[in-house]
């Protein structure tokens, strides 16, 4: 039996790696992938809590999280394609004006 804190620490490590990707990388595709890592780390901790508290709520929540993540990726990649057409670049620092 693996203790709950192991899963939480794993989740924290993956969350930190994802956050460092969002903060340090400038390539918008890798920023989006780091967001996926963050989603996954949250999923791990939700399922771990759900398992150790013998509840279903966390697992049901993960189903919704995965759905939201899929929607987020579709919108994110659409924005990425629109941005690449407008600026011909994938550097997030160049996204500094609101006007299209």
């Amino acid at each position: 039996m693996v203790p709950l804190s192991y899963y939480l620490i794993l989740s924290l490590i993956i969350f930190s790696i994802g956050l460092s990707g969002v903060l340090l990388r400038r390539n918008i595709i890798i920023v989006l992938m780091s967001l996926e890592l963050i989603f996954n780390s949250v999923n791990i901790s939700l399922v771990a809590f759900s398992h150790y508290l013998q509840s279903m709520t966390g697992r049901i929540f993960v189903v919704f999280t995965i759905t939201i993540a899929a929607a987020e990726v579709a919108i994110g990649l659409a924005i990425l394609v629109a941005f690449f057409r407008a600026r011909n670049s994938v550097n997030v620092d160049e996204a500094n004006v609101m006007r299209g």
Partner: peptide, 23 residues
């Protein structure tokens, strides 16, 4: 390992099958 095989299947279908192919 956390006794959620359904979520594991969903994870592979949606993340690997849909999200990463989209990426």
């Amino acid at each position: 390992l956390l006794r959620s095989p359904f979520l594991a299947a969903v994870q592979i279908f949606i993340y690997v099958g849909a999200v990463m192919v989209l990426f």
